[in-house]
């Protein structure tokens, strides 16, 4: 009888023990999927910006503007989208994936023939020009002094930083294809460093990266000077897919063109080093179309390579 009581006692303990060990919550959840979105508050319009920065920086600079616009739009919203490179951007733009987009002048012109309408642009056209840097001690005075020497560029299809300086040199009597050695070094900074190190006699770039470089490496910038500036072309354009409802476009226009009138908007623009966005139309970019046409005809072909950087 004693043993019997003991057995009961031990059993109780064992049960307690096993309860204690398997006390995890007996919940279950399995993920479910559907082919159509289940929730969506607003109509989403994708806003693609051409890869003028890496995606992180691009979000840093442009997300505040998108948020600003979304805060003022009713029933719809813009969603910022970066692209891994120009090829990816071009593919999305020319396939009509973006609703709104901010392409460079060359892409703007191309998009206008691929179902997009030009409705605005960045102001400050005077910034959209090329500059040519030489070392202060290089002794180069005339464009023709570059004959037989090497010139560094970021990329062959960059409009402001490569094509416009090449056009400038072409107009000042150099045959780009034979008189100089063209060195496409991949980035704006690389192009500037090449001339500082003496690997090239001149470096081709455009104002925004040069200003950034002065801030970051003042001791190097000190030894380099802007020798020549090209004339300018219309700045980056704003395009919208033709099927986007007119009232949405109108609302976006109203907000984006008055950015510079508010303090908050000014702060957003200053990150872009821009004074404002302004109205534009198809004819605004005629000068770009003309430049491209003459460049292809007189300097070198553009198509064949990617039209990448400026």
């Amino acid at each position: 009888m004693n043993l019997y009581i003991m057995k009961i006692f031990v059993l109780v303990l064992v049960v307690m023990l096993s309860f204690g060990c398997s006390s995890s919550e007996e919940n279950s959840y399995e993920p479910l999927y559907s082919n159509a979105p289940i929730f969506m508050k607003n109509k989403v319009y994708i806003f693609g910006v051409h890869p003028l920065h890496n995606p992180n920086r691009l979000f840093e600079v442009y997300q505040p503007m998108v948020d600003y616009i979304n805060a003022r739009l009713k029933g719809s919203e813009l969603r910022l989208e970066a692209s891994r490179n120009y090829a990816a951007y071009d593919e999305k733009l020319f396939s009509g994936y973006f609703h709104f987009s901010l392409p460079n002048p060359y892409q703007t012109v191309t998009a206008s023939s691929k179902g997009y309408k030009i409705f605005g642009k960045m102001a400050d056209d005077e910034n959209f020009r090329g500059i040519i840097l030489v070392r202060k001690d290089s002794g180069i005075e005339k464009v023709t002094d570059l004959r037989g020497k090497s010139v560094s560029y970021p990329a062959p299809t960059a409009l402001a930083a490569t094509m416009m300086p090449q056009w400038f040199m072409h107009e000042h009597g150099l045959n780009i294809n034979t008189d100089v050695k063209n060195s496409y070094v991949g980035s704006q900074e690389s192009s500037i460093l090449n001339v500082f190190l003496g690997k090239s006699a001149a470096a081709s770039t455009w104002p925004p990266p040069w200003r950034a470089f002065i801030k970051e490496r003042p001791e190097i910038a000190e030894q380099v000077e802007i020798k020549w500036e090209t004339s300018h072309l219309p700045n980056n354009g704003l395009v919208v897919r033709e099927d986007v409802p007119a009232d949405v476009v109108e609302s976006v226009c109203k907000i984006i063109f008055s950015l510079h009138e508010s303090k908050e908007g000014k702060a957003i623009l200053s990150k872009m080093e821009l004074s404002k966005y302004e109205k534009a139309e198809d004819a605004t970019y005629d000068s770009v179309r003309l430049f491209l046409k003459r460049f292809e005809k007189e300097v070198r072909p553009i198509r064949g390579g990617d039209l990448n950087d400026k």
């Binding site: 959840y29 399995e30 993920p31 479910l32 999927y33 559907s34 082919n35 159509a36 979105p37 289940i38 929730f39 969506m40 989403v44 969603r79």
Partner: peptide, 27 residues
């Protein structure tokens, strides 16, 4: 943000949307 699957170890789910309450609530 729309609940759309933009990557999945099982690629057949890409392009679909989440449809369970837990994730929808979270999103």
């Amino acid at each position: 943000p729309d609940g759309k699957i933009i990557a999945h170890t099982d690629t057949s789910y890409i392009g679909k949307y989440v449809a369970d309450a837990k994730r929808i609530k979270y999103l």
